[in-house]
Nucleic acid binder design. Sequence first.
DNA 1: TGTAACAGCGTACACGTGTACGCTTAAATA
DNA 2: TATTTAAGCGTACACGTGTACGCTGTTACA
Lengths: 210, 210
Amino acid sequence: MSGVRAQQKEKTRRQIINAALKQLSAERSFSSLSLREVAKEAGLAPTSFYRHFSDMDELGLTLVDEAGLTLRQLMRQARQRIAKGGSVIQISVQTFMELIESNGNVFRLLLRERSGTSAAFRAAVIREIRYFTMELCDYLQKANQLDADVAYMQAHAAVTIVFGAGSDALDIEDKTERDQLANQTIQQLRFIARGALEFSDRRKISKKFS
Amino acid sequence: MSGVRAQQKEKTRRQIINAALKQLSAERSFSSLSLREVAKEAGLAPTSFYRHFSDMDELGLTLVDEAGLTLRQLMRQARQRIAKGGSVIQISVQTFMELIESNGNVFRLLLRERSGTSAAFRAAVIREIRYFTMELCDYLQKANQLDADVAYMQAHAAVTIVFGAGSDALDIEDKTERDQLANQTIQQLRFIARGALEFSDRRKISKKFS
DNA sequence: TGTAACAGCGTACACGTGTACGCTTAAATA
DNA sequence: TATTTAAGCGTACACGTGTACGCTGTTACA
């Protein structure tokens, strides 16, 4: 049970995962990757791939899970920054944009598979995004004393906007243009926050009088 | 110049386009279509395909153009309905949802190619969406007397939200769930409209005092 | 120490792909 | 009417794909 063998297996498993991630780019989607290519990049015979994943699909789902993990780590990072003081919206957007810059291909994977041809992939991505949305929803509800529905709608809208901005950002290489997009996104999130707050207040008043 | 020949050519060209559209589905993206499959579905020998398109890419770009056209027709339809009275937001969302229901695969094409592997495709889709956004921007600016920047940000946010909702709707088959999504989307658009209006007003006041 | 488990390899196969080439047949033009 | 043009077809080729099968060498365990 020392695990020399298991350790080695885990290592080549990671090699496969990394090989797949490495091949992803703006021009190369996961579905366009072949088993043989990935195996080759990992320094493996094509047939050895099967010792670790029964399918390219299984590998893909693993990648989506990893991407979701990256996303959650990002949120924690953002919360730490926020705790140190600063505009919640601004810091969140900034953190997200940094993800795009450093892990563009991981984010691309999520975007693409969300509208991909595999129902399993779509479900997996949607699940990850839902986690993301729900955590934000909790935060908003507590921080702003919002109605549960309103908080959810705000969180959902905010996530949609941020992901949309991320998608746009992927096709922008100019730094100042990217900053402009970030500022625009911040402003849009403020529109939503303002609208949600006002609506929530109006509801509270009508509840008071009922 | 009677054009019996040209007419025939146009006809089979349409057959190719329709064959491609017919093969698109939730499980089948354009990039996963092969020239041979499309040709077969169109009742053509594989090599005859080249008489009409030099490439599958060329066919794909044609499809994106057609999808954009569909989108613009939709807007006109929505405007006609609005002119007959009713909530602008509600009618717009409703019209959009009807597109999803009747032309889901066309909309899927746009969503997928927007984050696809071909830069040309991405650019084409983004261009179509920009048209859509700009028309909405003009409308908002005139109807609500908004600042140009504010109107653009509102339009952009609204389009992002509506497209996001469309994307979600594609994976929902239950009618009541879909209606719920539509209502949520309407509410989110109201958040944005409210926030934009308030922000625009605040700007006008500060301009008055300057 | 003997043996069972198993990661990894190489070979081999059937299949689908894009497309080059030359042919046929019907419309367009001179 | 004679000639040119071009849509469509069939054959053929090289290539990349997933994966079945049997083998080797090393680790784990009795």
